[in-house]
Simulated scan of single mutants.
Amino acid sequence: MAYYKRKTGADRRRERVRAKLRRVAGDRLRLSIHRSSKHIYAQIIDDRGGRTVAAAGTVEKGLVGDIKSTMSVAAAEAVGKALAERAGQAGVKSVVFDRGGLKYHGRVKALADAAREGGLEF
């Protein structure tokens, strides 16, 4: 007897977002975001090659610097800037934004805007 996990609304939303990304992406890499209650992580993924090209997160020492909280919009902006810088060093200019079913609001929006300011196009 096979085990079947019922899909939640978040699972269906995540699948819907990723399906649209596959249709629109073309040859671009994917900027994926994961937001937990304490931290935010972002990585640029090459789905064809199955590897991570660049990554940044608030868990890294020295990335957030003198910002008090890793749960703040300012910390998300720092992650976005660091990711854009690392992507530039890896030669990545254009990506497709995968919010992973999260609302484009708050920390997610701050990270995306900072990555755009850093030179990423999406």
Results as ranks from 00 to 15, higher is better:
84 A>L: 13
59 V>I: 09
63 L>P: 09
6 R>T: 09
48 R>T: 12
61 K>I: 12
65 G>N: 11
40 I>G: 02
43 Q>T: 09
62 G>Q: 06
63 L>A: 08
110 A>P: 02
116 R>E: 09
27 D>W: 13
117 E>I: 07
24 V>P: 02
47 D>L: 13
35 R>W: 10
41 Y>M: 04
60 E>N: 12
73 V>T: 06
27 D>Y: 14
104 Y>D: 05
59 V>P: 03
44 I>C: 05
46 D>S: 11
99 R>P: 02
55 A>S: 15
119 G>S: 01
19 A>L: 10
5 K>W: 06
22 R>Y: 03
111 L>N: 01
8 T>A: 05
84 A>I: 15
76 A>E: 03
20 K>L: 14
4 Y>L: 12
36 S>Y: 04
103 K>P: 06
14 R>W: 04
78 A>G: 00
32 S>F: 01
120 L>Q: 02
78 A>V: 00
10 A>H: 12
122 F>R: 05
22 R>P: 03
89 Q>A: 15
63 L>V: 10
71 M>Q: 13
28 R>S: 09
20 K>V: 13
85 E>L: 13
91 G>E: 03
61 K>D: 12
104 Y>V: 03
12 R>Q: 15
118 G>P: 02
117 E>W: 03
42 A>F: 00
15 E>H: 10
111 L>M: 08
23 R>F: 12
114 A>W: 09
54 A>L: 11
72 S>L: 05
75 A>M: 02
88 G>L: 09
53 V>Q: 10
117 E>D: 07
89 Q>M: 15
96 V>E: 13
57 G>W: 02
33 I>A: 07
4 Y>F: 13
32 S>M: 03
75 A>W: 00
111 L>Y: 03
101 G>E: 05
47 D>H: 13
12 R>D: 13
93 K>R: 11
76 A>H: 04
68 K>N: 00
34 H>Q: 15
68 K>P: 03
35 R>K: 15
5 K>I: 10
68 K>L: 02
49 G>A: 11
90 A>I: 06
10 A>E: 13
29 L>H: 06
3 Y>E: 14
81 K>D: 06
2 A>M: 07
102 L>P: 00
88 G>S: 09
107 R>C: 01
30 R>P: 03
4 Y>V: 14
45 I>C: 02
27 D>K: 12
110 A>D: 00
73 V>K: 03
12 R>F: 15
41 Y>A: 03
122 F>S: 07
47 D>Y: 15
17 V>M: 11
56 A>L: 01
45 I>P: 01
67 I>W: 01
94 S>N: 14
